[in-house]
Design a protein around this nucleic acid. Structure first.
Length: 282
DNA sequence: CTGACAATC
DNA sequence: GATTGTCAG
């Protein structure tokens, strides 16, 4: 009898503990737990097949909003710091992303062949060289957009190299978001609006937003009105190969108005309004 | 000139 | 795997 009385005494406490755990478990999926979405979720993407054109794919290596109409990501977002970098060689295993919801077309590793467009990485292979698994993940076709070779291998690649330099040689931590917008690009076989028999759309422009944190690990609170933000918007076209990426710098505000996305939404609006209006000039 | 990175065939 | 091209050191 004594034992039962003791249990009755404990019951309310047990109830509170269980309820607290339950609430936490329910809340967990709702928030963007991904480190790659530290600065925000630009389109409010959710992992819900009711929104096939803004479907959140959250991987340990990066997060993205997939568009099942264009068959390319709306945006891809990833963290870049020293811990992601190592000596793993490029895996080159371009392949379909089988994690897409069943019934959706899966862009094949071969779908860009003969199109005149590169399978342009959003999260670069060279930004994930710490393990074979992480490098290989960048070759999933959901991380690709059809990119004009002169864009991808020219100023776009140079900005990627510059970004890694900020991490390796200046100790920065970056939060990067990139994608395309508009319709119709000019690749090595001319202007196209779609490739792969109309299955995949070709964007007219490619854009990128890079938040440069002086203190790795400082997160959103490391962002001040002095924080450097590099944003670029360049044509998805041939003929720009030898252009300096710096000539394509714009404000985050201009990319927001062209894409309809809201960047850095986890940063206080008073800081956002300053750093999103500024055009990088370093 | 070489190595790293972006690719294609 | 071989080849092409750019860039940084």
């Amino acid at each position: 009898m004594k034992k039962y009385k003791f249990f009755n005494f404990l019951l309310p406490f047990l109830g509170v503990v269980l309820l607290t755990l339950l609430l936490h478990w329910q809340k967990a999926p709702a928030q963007s737990s991904s480190i790659h979405l530290t600065m925000g979720n630009p389109s409010g993407a959710v992992t819900n097949t009711s929104y096939p054109n803004n479907y959140l794919l959250s991987k340990s290596q990066y997060a993205l909003s997939y568009n099942n109409t264009t068959r390319i990501p709306n945006w891809v977002s990833w963290q870049l710091n020293n811990s992601w970098l190592g000596s793993t060689p490029r895996q080159d295993d371009f392949r379909a992303d089988t994690s897409l919801p069943s019934g959706w077309y899966q862009v094949q590793g071969t779908d860009y062949q003969g199109s005149g467009f590169d399978r342009g990485h959003m999260t670069p292979s060279a930004d994930r060289t710490n393990t074979v698994t992480n490098n290989s993940a960048t070759f999933l076709m959901t991380n690709m957009i059809p990119q004009a070779p002169d864009n991808n291998q020219g100023p776009w690649a140079n900005l990627e190299n510059y970004s890694r330099d900020l991490v390796v040689n200046q100790g920065k931590e970056l939060y990067i978001i990139s994608g395309g917008y508009g319709s119709g690009g000019t690749g090595s076989n001319g202007t196209k609006y779609t490739i792969a028999n109309g299955k995949i759309q070709v964007p007219a422009r490619t854009w990128k937003v890079i938040v440069v944190l002086d203190t790795p690990g400082s997160g959103v609170s490391g962002v001040t009105t002095n924080t450097r933000v590099i944003a670029v918007d360049m044509p998805n076209s041939q003929g720009i190969r030898s252009d300096n990426w710096k000539t394509y710098r714009v404000s985050v505000d201009s990319i927001e108005s062209n894409t309809g996305y809201n960047f850095l939404s986890n940063v206080s609006t008073s800081i956002q309004s300053v750093i999103e209006a500024r055009i990088d000039n370093l």
